[in-house]
Design a protein around this nucleic acid. Structure first.
Lengths: 245, 245
DNA sequence: GAGTGGTCTAGACCACAGG
DNA sequence: CTGTGGTCTAGACCACTCG
């Protein structure tokens, strides 16, 4: 059960892929697509199917659709837009140089909540890694990683420390990007408090990151759940348009 | 058989809002929604209209939908998204209205920490506003705003509620953009806990936003310090390229 | 098998942009 | 006005999950 399964693609997907090709090769920014009726006739499908395809292009950031006007190409460079979303580890993004210690690595039955996002069945095996990150000798973040073993078999044995995403890239030729992150706050569990050397009264910042294959954002390979000391750690959100390259 | 609606909102929106209400009030994580056919019958709309509503809940992160199983509630918190320099609520995206109540408005001597960022002298006058934001009738965020009176004279008298940034834009012809935000976690003060109706053991998510003139990011006009209930509020960092309008 | 979501078609009408 | 996208309905069939 480790190979991604493919049946025949839905029509709307074939249409959206055809449109991407057209956009990349024949469109410049600001061009309008043919109307939905035209496209429907052209591809010999229903207008709703065309709309469904364009929906995807919109959520991918290629197209802007305006009632009464048309659908406009606002981005025609796939590689560029995907590269912008390339994965940067949370702490790296925060500019922390940190040391990381592997606490545990095992294969367990997948918790239901995780299974949903990794597209696994409840209780099917999943790889769970626990790492602790230090900054200047102090424990700052406790991170639980869940890996889909279909993509990263044996990772619980092969990974020994260092950048997990670098390890995945090198060992499995999978390039990950963050598809989404959620930030919240919660109180520490007793064990976590001990590891992070904080009191039970001190809240933690929690970041859940969903990391997917660059080429297919729906293929979530890894989920990381980090809990970080709020007394030593905060998240900085730069001005939009800031570049860190 | 069709009853064309003159209502301002599309039906699928009305349905999605109804569902949000149900989810927030009656669902715990992992619950399943009624089937699409059931919902269609219940709301007396077509199944496709229900699907369109659920599509929105999925893209807002509330729901996970699985073929053959059903639609499961995976999040019953309100996500705030870091997009385009603003914090946008998932509920805004769904068209739900959130209400904001002005608690106090006064001019005070500027605290040193604030003065630095607003380019003011210590103890020179600064406008301080306290607002409480409600979603679905529940208090979610408590926000303290500090305004540089050089840019927004008399704001403590003129502002009476609603969107502060809209007020500033209209009254002073100043368009604000977030130049930076810092996210952390902390325990509530006693008064804040009471206003937010949470216990003293429940951590808050704190966001400090520095809002500057669009054309001159060094001209910080407003600093807002929000404390939000972590049981109902989380921050969503979207995939680069996501657009939800 | 029954029930769920996933896709596709067909046709209708509404709301908006622009000549 | 025409043409565009936006919404809604109706019915069909497929693919998946579970008992």
């Amino acid at each position: 059960m480790n190979a991604p399964i493919k049946t025949s693609k839905p029509i709307y997907r074939q249409v959206s892929e055809a449109l991407v090709k057209v956009i990349c090769e024949h469109c410049t920014l600001g061009d309008y697509l043919p109307s939905e009726n035209t496209l429907a006739a052209q591809y010999k499908v229903n207008r709703h199917t065309v709309r469904r395809a364009v929906d995807d292009l919109i959520s991918a950031g290629f197209i802007s659709r305006k009632q009464g006007k048309g659908s406009q190409v606002i981005n025609n460079r796939i590689d560029y837009s995907l590269e912008k979303g390339r994965f940067t580890s949370t702490l790296d993004a925060l500019g922390c140089q940190s040391e990381s210690r592997l606490l545990s690595a095992q294969q367990i039955a997948c918790p239901a909540k995780i299974a949903r996002y990794l597209n696994l069945d409840d209780s099917s095996p999943v790889i769970k890694l626990e790492t602790l990150r230090f900054v200047e000798g102090d424990p700052i973040s406790l991170i639980t990683h869940f890996l889909n073993p279909g993509y990263t078999p044996d990772a619980e044995r092969l990974y020994t420390g260092g950048s997990l995403h670098l390890f995945i890239e090198r060992s499995y030729q999978i390039e990950l990007i963050r598809s989404q992150a959620l930030i919240s706050a919660e109180m520490p569990a007793r064990d976590d408090a001990a590891l992070l050397r904080v009191s039970l009264d001190s809240p933690l910042l929690k970041i859940e990151s969903f990391n997917a294959i660059k080429e297919d954002l729906n293929a979530v390979v890894e989920i990381s759940i980090s809990r970080s000391r709020s007394d030593r750690f905060q998240i900085k959100v730069p001005t939009p348009g800031d570049t860190h390259e």
